[in-house]
Design a protein around this nucleic acid. Sequence first.
DNA 1: ATGAAAGCGCTAACAG
DNA 2: CTGTTAGCGCTTTCAT
Lengths: 365, 365
Amino acid sequence: MVNIREVARAAGVSTATVSRYFAGQTVRNHETISRTVADLGYLPSPLARSLKSGRHHAIGVIVPDIANPFFAGLVKGIEAEARSRGYEIILGNTDEDARHERALVASIAQRSDGLIIAPVLAETSSLFRLGDLDIPLVLVDRDVLPDASVDRVLVDNEAGAALAVDHLVSLGHERIGFISGPLDSTPGRGRYEGFLQALRQHGLDAGAEYGAEYIRVGDFREEGGYRAMTELLALPDRRRPTAVFGASNLLTLGALRALNDHGVSVPGQLSVIGFDDLSFAPLLNPPLTVIRRPEIEQGATAARLLFGRLGRDAGAEPLPGQRISLPVELVVRGSTAAPESAAPEPAAPDSSTLQPFDKLRELTS
Amino acid sequence: MVNIREVARAAGVSTATVSRYFAGQTVRNHETISRTVADLGYLPSPLARSLKSGRHHAIGVIVPDIANPFFAGLVKGIEAEARSRGYEIILGNTDEDARHERALVASIAQRSDGLIIAPVLAETSSLFRLGDLDIPLVLVDRDVLPDASVDRVLVDNEAGAALAVDHLVSLGHERIGFISGPLDSTPGRGRYEGFLQALRQHGLDAGAEYGAEYIRVGDFREEGGYRAMTELLALPDRRRPTAVFGASNLLTLGALRALNDHGVSVPGQLSVIGFDDLSFAPLLNPPLTVIRRPEIEQGATAARLLFGRLGRDAGAEPLPGQRISLPVELVVRGSTAAPESAAPEPAAPDSSTLQPFDKLRELTS
DNA sequence: ATGAAAGCGCTAACAG
DNA sequence: CTGTTAGCGCTTTCAT
């Protein structure tokens, strides 16, 4: 690797002049230097520059699972925004593991100028001390800290859940199952609260009894969705829900799989709506009705927030932590419809309808 | 940021001793140093270390589209493997743009010890000079270079395509459409060749005429799949294919969307098989039969190959470029079945069958 | 406009 | 085992 000294020597100037040349300052031997640089194929070492300047020109991005389409989209949005400013992306995948996350944050924070992180779902107590970081931080998707000095990009989970309930109620549903995410995470909690509140607003029972029957709380994984749906299907026939709201894409996918396996037709026997759109949601069986949130935009927004802080002088007065809430929208596709009882021809449940639920008991025992 | 000098002073030793302490060498004042480091919260600067050692402890990963599930899985596999060795991942997203790719390679190569790249699909001439890089390189998924000194991790595209054809032929199909990727890319070309060869092996016509009718060549994007499928559907009824093989996940998804839009039932009127599995393929309408290749494993393999090179002494004799081909497998789900004509009751095509194709002409005009 | 020189934080001879 | 010192490649005063 050719360095600045060799260039300086070959061009007959000092290293300082070559450095100034690269800084865009006017130098006498512009031409000579330019040619020498090209001849030697010289490139300034980013490492040495960083050591001198104290800036890495890189930002860290830490997500729970890059293979989850939501986070992949998030990263894509961040990458584009960072790249356009000449910044590198250092990627970390926590696998939804708090210990792992702590290690990643420690390691990546040392090599970047700022961090965007979608924190692991876990008790607050087990969380790394984000406040200890000495670089700017932007939290995405999940809000885990009371610390006022970090930015956050979230979506209006309450409004999203309410949108889902409104939609189902307007179709005539009254027994609505809810497959919830963990309540100690903001998305999980927010969608849960939004669900209950919307239910009450529609004058539907949302008491403890309702919760015990129709609400299943789990993690955000597909397996949890499968299990929750299976449990809901196991309810006595007359009390089983006519619609189900899945609190995340994976949860909903799991529920769909359970429905498939148990031969329950959607939306014929049961309507399904999910939180989070997916590129392939229109191709699902049936096309999935969802609450959509803009994942790429969420990433881009987080990046812009971060660069806003990075651009400020070190001496400037500290910005208070911003909290940006992105809007969600209802996308109606084929998986939601009026409940059977509300159909024009209220066909008495025949054996083919009942069978899946009977079969179910064996499966869940 | 506290540095090594402050630690040395506080502990009453020289910086060299502190450095040795961190290198795991035996030092007299182990205890004192350990305590001082903890008190001051000292962490060695990776930047300074790298400048000194010449190693970044980071590898670059460049993919065409991180939001594509295949590449997301690939990155996940690489990340896990790198992380377990204490290496950082620097991520680049080319958006399938050769110019963009060149810039990314130039930028990322300067900040990492090795590169794993799934190259953009483009004419060879427009490719960056990978040979010019002075760090190890592993090519994944797509093979673009004659250069013998780089490693490659690919899958057996020919065998995969043959697997798909075998499956369709065994079901009784004889007019098989093929939605191909670009022929100037190895995956595109390989699957194309495999398709044709398998056809011939089954004694089916695979001449120029066949190609003109049943083979549609495009890019690897969903939109291309949609268009190709639309064109295939526009063929005169008696000559239209009874099955279609999509050369990539996006291509197949696009084809499925076209089929949906035109009201063609799958596999009733047309069987569909795709290259690349997807986590949600079982949930598609209908569950998609695919040729599966292991994306996470492909990423992990690429990373292992790269670290194999990184671990070698600079002086060691250069390893020849390895070429690892990972196996593919057929996963039969619901989107493939015997053709209509082979069904027990060969129902004469009625208007409902014809309609979509008639409607089609308007749409494609 | 330019060069000499100091220094970012660390490691590795070298001499003890 | 330990301290002194040079130096990784660059930028930036400080003079000139």
